[in-house]
Amino acid sequence: MDNPTWMPNRTAWVDFILVGLFPRSRHPALLCLVLFGMLLMALSGNALLILLIRANTRLHTPMYFLISQLSLMDMVYISTTVPKMLMDQVTGENRISAPECGVQMFLYLTVVGSEFFLLAAMSYDRYVAICHPLRYPILMSHRVCLLLASGCWFLGSVDGFMLTPVTMTFPFCRSREIHHFFCEVPAVMKLSCSDTSLYEVLMYLCCVLMLLIPVTVISSSYTCILLTVLRINSAEGRKKALATCSSHMSVVLLFYGAAVYTYMLPSSYHTPKKDMVVSVFYTILTPVLNPLIYSLRNKDVTEALKKMRSVRPAFHDMVK
């Protein structure tokens, strides 16, 4: 009973074991502390960005509505993986039950898929704002924004509903150890004792489609934006137009670069160590960096933050 996670012709699940991010580290407590700090930074940074967007009427625009959705996804994203990993490190209990693994996998796939499409929606927003400014209030109305956000969450959940049940119903009998710090599909599939080649091909095609559609929208949008910017006579106008896109392009490159490695490169390019490093990059670092990118490089957000900080002393003076 100790070796298999799922015994063929049996119906009893046995817990998986997550090897973790730093199983052989000499300073696990220090690394754990660093990860906890990054978790707090990601949650507080994204929560603050959402609060600023909701509290400041100047930020009640389609662009910032979509940014708030991105921050929400990042909060769900990092909360799905890091707290469990930190808890395992503190307690020394690296087990995760099959249902918990399935839930973690589903949430992770849903948020990743949703973020793919949301980044595409954000590029479309910038395209309309720069290329069709007079029609912007109509093409990006509040109703359209809600439909775009809802569509992104729905398409992401389709990815989760498609891949999670199939992955978790394979027989696992090679080992109970998942060489990862969370239940990611490629890491879990390596434990299967059945032939998964057909499923891996279908998963690859699904991931290509999930990436290809948003990448097509993003590349088309920015091609049109670039052509429009080149026709602007004013250097200041060109600079302002490009500035509104630079933050989004930074996030796109960070997120899609890691996703292409994980889901589109052949298995010969993958090792457990490389996979974990890349996963750290886009499951932990990206949620930390996104609010910094959109706040430090955005004049409206920094002004809203200064306004909030100036209101607090005034409020305390009134209370006194």
Results as ranks from 00 to 15, higher is better:
77 Y>I: 01
79 S>N: 13
79 S>E: 07
81 T>D: 05
82 V>E: 02
85 M>H: 13
85 M>L: 08
85 M>N: 07
86 L>W: 03
87 M>L: 08
89 Q>F: 00
90 V>N: 00
91 T>C: 02
92 G>Y: 03
92 G>T: 05
94 N>Q: 06
95 R>H: 08
96 I>Y: 02
99 P>C: 05
100 E>H: 07
105 M>Q: 14
105 M>H: 01
109 L>A: 12
109 L>C: 15
113 G>V: 07
117 F>M: 11
117 F>L: 10
119 L>V: 06
121 A>Y: 03
122 M>V: 04
122 M>Q: 15
123 S>D: 06
124 Y>M: 10
124 Y>V: 09
125 D>M: 08
127 Y>K: 15
127 Y>D: 09
128 V>R: 14
134 L>I: 12
135 R>Y: 09
137 P>K: 06
141 S>Y: 08
143 R>W: 08
143 R>Q: 11
144 V>C: 05
146 L>D: 01
152 C>Y: 03
154 F>W: 15
154 F>T: 14
157 S>I: 04
158 V>F: 14
163 L>Y: 02
164 T>S: 14
164 T>N: 04
166 V>I: 15
166 V>Q: 12
167 T>P: 05
169 T>L: 08
170 F>L: 11
171 P>R: 13
173 C>S: 12
174 R>N: 11
175 S>N: 14
178 I>P: 00
180 H>K: 00
183 C>L: 07
185 V>A: 02
186 P>I: 01
